[in-house]
Design a protein around this nucleic acid. Structure first.
Lengths: 164, 164
DNA sequence: CAGAGATTGGTATAATATAACAGCACGTCA
DNA sequence: TGACGTGCTGTTATATTATACCAATCTCTG
């Protein structure tokens, strides 16, 4: 049994992958149309693969998966696609894992924080204004002007920790 | 002219390097003696180099600097030393830079946050209980139990931003 | 259609990190 | 004393992640 609070943030293992992939892709199409960005076939495919994995996935894993489509892909292909997707706010890079995840809130610009389960590797994207503000405030107190934040919390998700 | 608040956190370019290195090394000796850890010559030397740079420094830069001592060092040598130093809380790894900095508060265990100037590459280590608590609280609200935090804020330090 | 700019393909290589095994130093315990 | 265990170092090799660079192609716009 799980709290109501967790059921939204941490996806059920049995949730409908196919649907969340197609939702993400549809959202991406929208975003790109709105912003005048080109979601080309490769970029779309990479985004699809990122969501298919539904956990942080390395560039070279994506590369392997891309290559299974038929034609062998090279590293720059996937890195370029990822760079575009990050720029468009459709994908985030997890620095502590050298890996990428689909953005859960692609519809608007935001600074976010990640909860990374070290057991099942699930990642949840938090979007706490509160944390963002605290960080900026503490930095500003030292005269530091924040441009980017990378906040990655590693630990155990509700499904994986002993209390469960 | 600079605020009082910044003078402690962000080291003056003209501050006495030699002293801050020797202070750090003395603190490291203490810590290791207290914890029963062995600060061997290599480990001590790597720590010294980290402090000499006094900004985040890559493992391969350290390797080059080590090699200038006479005998050519190999990657595992420096990575092992860094691993030890991290374990001992004497050095932190900056995930967004794949680089290492000396820990400013090696005398006690702590979770910390980094302010990274994208212009001059200076890094300041914040140790905000406040932020640590907020992060844990927000995570706990989703049933997530935090074990490690990586908080890295990139932006402009007081010396480098336009307002200065 | 011509030209500019964006996108892709491909080669090569850079930069970061670890696996695996051999040898040595040092303490300890029979 | 000496045999063993443990931890540290040396060394080779390789894995993993990421980018520089140039050529070819596509797409949009005027």
């Amino acid at each position: 049994m799980k709290h109501a609070a967790t059921s939204e943030a941490f996806p059920d293992a049995a949730h409908d992958h196919a649907e969340c992939i197609s939702t993400a892709l549809a959202a991406a199409e929208d975003t790109c149309r709105r912003e005048g960005l080109r979601l080309t076939p490769i970029r779309r495919r990479v985004l699809e693969l990122v969501w298919q994995n539904h956990r942080p996935v390395g560039a070279y894993d994506l590369l392997d998966q891309l290559s299974r489509d038929g034609k062998r892909a090279m590293p720059p292909t996937v890195y370029r696609a990822l760079e575009f997707l990050q720029g468009a706010g459709l994908v985030h890079r997890i620095a502590t894992l050298n890996a990428f995840v689909g953005c859960s809130h692609p519809d608007h610009a935001h600074q976010c924080q990640f909860l990374i389960c070290s057991d099942c590797r699930t990642v949840v994207e938090l979007e706490s204004e509160n944390i963002g503000r605290s960080l900026k405030r503490e930095a500003a107190a030292l005269g530091f002007q924040v441009r980017e934040q990378s906040v990655e919390l590693t630990g155990l998700c509700p499904e994986c920790h002993p209390a469960h």
